[in-house]
Amino acid sequence: MVMVDVRNVRKVYRRDTQEVPVLDGLSIAIDEGDFVGLMGPSGSGKTTLLNLIGGIDRPTSGELTVAGQALGPLGGRALAKWRSRTIGYIFQLYNLIPVLTAEQNVELPLMLVRMSGKERRDRARHALGIVGLADRVKHFPRQLSGGQEQRVAIARAIVSDPRVLLADEPTGDLDRKSGDEILELLARLNREHQKTIVMVTHDSHAAERAHRVVHLDKGVLSA
């Protein structure tokens, strides 16, 4: 089954009066359970493609269907709701809320779902257990290493059991050892939990973990 279907997508940014094309008629299909690495030079449109798949940006033209849902017709509220159920997003700089503990950060996506506080806590702790941070639930981000912060971010991304994980250079801010641990974790989530993963990376070593690597250059797929 195709999990991500991108068809003839164009994305043009406007800077003042100038139009800057980022994606130019790009099409790609990603199967359910796949682990795809997106590589390419800076400005090639990798993050833009990721944002379009995640529904946090809209294409100038073209169609996107993710997890069976065509994103074009969805309004702002419906898109936000769909995103909370379907997409787990992992940022390069973790983007944890500094005043919340690891557990509270992981609980954030669950606040949008009707459930008891206890259930929310249990699920957050379970997610933290999956990423190997069961003993760090009460730690604040400043009390964690970069690798641990990224694992909390991954726990936050998986806590609502989304079908698609989008990772934007998840190891870009980590040393090699921590980076390898994160890549192994992503591979395990793909392997054991059947998450479809799309990962943007500059690092060919990181890309080796993906089932397949797609190269972008100037907004189009290259060989």
Binding site: G54, I56, G76, R77, A80, K81, R83, S84, R85, Y89, F91, N95, I97, L108, P109, L112, R156
Partner: peptide
């Protein structure tokens, strides 16, 4: 940026 993160997680504008 935190509002951006919350919105990415699915928080609606109204929330």
């Amino acid at each position: 940026s935190e509002f951006g993160v919350l919105k990415t997680l699915g928080f609606e504008d109204g929330t």
